[in-house]
Design a protein around this nucleic acid. Structure first.
Lengths: 135, 135
DNA sequence: ATAACGGATGTTATATCATAACGCGATGCG
DNA sequence: CGCATCGCGTTATGATATAACATCCGTTAT
């Protein structure tokens, strides 16, 4: 059996990227991550993108398409349906993750009605979070 | 009264971009549009991006976030809710636009429950369209 | 008429996001 | 050992997007 990198464990770079993302309040671009992690030894974009790619495959990180940026998954434990909803505050940049079975199901239905075989979906809401509304 | 560009009419560049997009089967990137329209006199990215920006504001064009690309709106007539769904075929690249009140409403609800003031949303489904499934 | 203004335009340069391609070194396995 | 695999580091480049500035041309005010 090979324990090197065949499934569970994260490599050094992957750990660094995941920790930086988890510590961040907002979504971070790959280059922002690179800047933050330069002191930790990362030098070039591919290092960050490779780590992100693997972390995404493991479901530990999500890409926010409308921002070209990334967030750590809030609840990496349970396999989430392919229908996570992201609420992105346009004031403070906070991204919150929402799971909603009803919408996931409806999307499946709608896709089916349109004769579309759904594999993944990206649902991104823009607006103002509670904290910023209060201010 | 000024008829030049105060609301309704499209400028030459805007018309060119909209026509190119409407003619396309799939979503097109700004640079793809630029290539296509070079013979028509467009030379540089800002010309395309400016036209796209205005067309989007008019609701005639949508941006597909997950592709960094653009499509002409299928039904520019009726003001659509801020919850259009795009079904993107990963085989042939076709993008179809789906309107669904139920999902739009549910998203409003879910956002409200999360104390989030929703302004716009991007819903992008990836998968296989009917034609490609049949093949 | 003409000066001043505003909006669209054209153009150059640059910022930002992402990946191709190569070689190295460690590890597991025959 | 010899070889395959994988992560890694590095360089270079591709792809997407915008800043900034000069110009042109109707409209409007004088």
């Amino acid at each position: 059996m090979t324990d090197k990198q065949s499934g569970e464990t994260l490599t050094r770079n992957q750990t660094l990227v995941l920790e930086a993302l988890s510590a961040a309040e907002t979504a971070m671009t790959a280059y922002a991550l690179l800047d933050v992690l330069r002191d930790s030894g990362l030098r070039a974009p591919p290092q960050v993108y490779r780590a992100l790619e693997r972390l995404r495959a493991l479901g530990l990180v999500h890409r926010i398409e409308s921002l070209n940026a990334f967030v750590a998954c809030c609840h990496p434990d349970h396999d989430h349906a392919p229908a996570t909803i992201f609420a992105i505050c346009e004031d403070c940049g906070t991204v919150s993750e929402i799971e909603n079975e009803a919408i996931a199901g409806r999307l499946e239905t709608v896709a089916g009605e349109a004769d579309f075989k759904l594999s993944r979906s990206a649902i991104e809401l823009k607006g103002q979070c509670g904290d910023c509304t209060a201010k």
